[in-house]
Write a protein that binds this DNA or RNA. Structure first.
Lengths: 130, 130
DNA sequence: AGAAAAGATGACGTTGACGTAAACGGGACG
DNA sequence: CGTCCCGTTTACGTCAACGTCATCTTTTCT
């Protein structure tokens, strides 16, 4: 491996995933490691994509949704129609994320309040116990 | 059904879920509809819980994580040890949500930038085409 | 060279969150 | 009265996202 490409194990260590996961992502066309004979070599591009994949997962996006989004970051020579469709998909995801953020803010506030209430309840029990 | 309790179908319509889902949630002890003979009647409490359940799901929490949190909102007569354990769990979830929010903000910014880039690319193609 | 480690390719297993189908009971209605 | 329709239980099916063998080559280390 050069400094540009990495073996599967190096990728696993770097991103804390299993080999199975990387092979699975390749099968699902999320990653495109080149082959050196039999073995996979992951490029800088694969690393960038994997980073986005893992992030997407943390937001609850499916691998398929993520796959569509990934094209946005690696356009290159795409057709114009394809490109603007990708842009539409991205806009949908962006809307999702903004809705999610709004709801998340609300939920955080509510949860904080509720914890405050229960916390007060607990401490007042203690003062009553004395 | 009184205005206090609802049939399974009314619940389904109100929350856009299937009967199967509600029965499943009951089996997993997330909901506790009372029984009128054989049939389930969902209470105001069930409605409040279901609302929280669906929200939790949108944030990517598992049903088990959600189940633990729900106790926070319906304490009633819980043991004190149980109560403070629930509070700990809630703190964990809260941390999760705040991390999620931070990362979400970052991702929204990045996605916006990327869309801007691709959008510019598209429009410059058009101007070049003329 | 010989053994151990890394990697590959199937193929089957698993878990969470339901979907779906079969078989049954009880009101409501034309 | 028959027949829908709603609801129930039980049980098996499904789909995503990998985990877990088993088996086989290929490197790498000593």
């Amino acid at each position: 491996m050069t400094s540009e490409t990495m073996t599967i194990r190096q990728m696993c260590d770097l991103f804390d995933v299993t080999p199975r996961t990387l092979r699975f992502y390749e099968a699902k066309e999320l990653l495109f490691p080149v082959r050196e004979g039999q073995r996979r070599l992951f490029t800088r591009r694969d690393r960038a994509r994997l980073k986005l994949i893992l992030r997407g997962k943390r937001f609850g996006f499916s691998l398929e949704e993520i796959r569509q989004l990934l094209d946005l970051y690696y356009v290159g020579d795409s057709q114009e129609t394809q490109l603007s469709r990708t842009l539409d998909i991205a806009q949908d995801r962006l809307n999702d994320m903004e809705r999610q953020r709004a709801e998340l803010n609300e939920a955080i506030d509510e949860l904080r309040n509720q914890m405050q209430l229960v916390g007060d309840m607990l401490s007042s029990r203690h003062s009553a116990a004395q």
